[in-house]
Write a protein that binds this DNA or RNA. Structure first.
Lengths: 203, 203
DNA sequence: GCAATTTCGTACCGTTTCGAACATATTTAG
DNA sequence: CTAAATATGTTCGAAACGGTACGAAATTGC
């Protein structure tokens, strides 16, 4: 994609990817409703009209941030879940990878944009739809990985193991926001992985 | 407490308990930041100054609602957890009692004020403190009930069982807001209780 | 150069926000 | 019946809100 074929008019100078990252940071730190367009403008360095042109209105900015956040999770954490090897270590590694996203430091946690902030704004249909999609994706990927590691199990047992794993991650967001440290949640994830392994008869 | 010894001045006519219930309903449906004082005024039927006089400013209203909500949980759901009998049924009954609070109907879920809406407003110190208190209480009561039902177990095993139970409930709030039905979460709770029972060697 | 085209920020609009000042209503004390 | 005291709703104001109209800036095609 060279600029040999350039459009007429003033060339765009806005880094939409960097701006989107700032949107994610602010939204997951303070939630949807508590963030103003002025806040977003200051955080991104873009004027309010520029924000509007690039991402639409405030609701559109938030749902786009949810999508982008989900994509980042898919890129940086899901591979750890789907990696070959023991289920127990795959789960532990996945939890830790998610904690790397949820935490900036061991103590300070911006948290999860989807599981942490979306529930309180779920009366907006588009937000609820994204929240549901995020949970569904988590459940589906988790069930697939568990079935692969422990084939032929009773369906109810697989469901149980899946729920324990998914619920562990979902609870991370609330616990992180409550002040739990990254280290505490890491051992919590490891214990959850261990219990699932035991339940499935894998250790 | 008769009115034989009445104060001078116009007697109060406001039902603060009913008003508090309306505050809880609105806050847990839309979160903290998305609710305006006018919304609260309309929902309670009280004027804005009356709200202010009865409950302080908006933040104070929210944290008071968190406290009142926690008290209601303590009254109507915790007894189910601490009831005598099998751990498995105690856990199931507790989960169902919580779902009775989270859901108005099988499909419509106002959700949990503490685990559902507080995380996105946890940058407010007072809100974070209440969120932490709620999670701590849940963990403590859960651990006590589990230790009682399965004494002498390894500490790590007790922690694991406790976490699975607590995280199940915490995840309920996000799942309920995502559109999950009460029935779905009820079977999820039953499966979680069953798994914990198995892990502890109780069934 | 000059017009057309696209990008971008300043300034602005109407609405909503929280909170307080103020006047009014309702009671007891004397 | 009057004065004091308490409770309550109407009114107001300054600030912040989301969103947009409009003009300035920067580039291409001719």
């Amino acid at each position: 994609m060279t600029d040999s074929q350039r459009k007429p008019g003033r060339p765009a100078t806005i880094d939409t990817d960097a701006a989107m990252q700032s949107l994610i940071e602010l939204f997951r730190a303070k939630g949807y409703a508590a963030v103003s367009l002025d806040d977003l403008s200051e955080a991104t360095g873009l004027s309010r009209p520029s924000l509007y042109r690039s991402f639409g209105n405030k609701l559109s900015m938030y749902v786009s941030a949810m999508d982008a956040f989900g994509a980042q999770v898919g890129e940086s954490a899901i591979p750890a879940l789907e990696a070959e090897g023991e289920l127990k270590s795959a789960l532990s590694n996945f939890f830790n990878a998610m904690l790397d996203i949820y935490y900036r430091d061991n103590d300070i946690a911006p948290g999860c944009l989807v599981f942490g902030t979306a529930p309180s704004s779920a009366d907006e249909e588009k937000i609820q739809a994204r929240l549901k999609y995020g949970i569904d994706q988590l459940d589906v990927r988790m069930r697939a990985r568990i079935t692969q590691a422990a084939p032929g199990r009773d369906a109810a047992l697989v469901d149980t193991a899946t729920q324990i794993a998914s619920n562990t991650l979902i609870a991370f967001s609330a616990r992180a926001k409550s002040g739990a440290t990254k280290a505490e949640l890491s051992t919590m994830g490891a214990r959850s992985a261990q219990a699932i392994s035991v339940l499935l008869g894998l250790s």
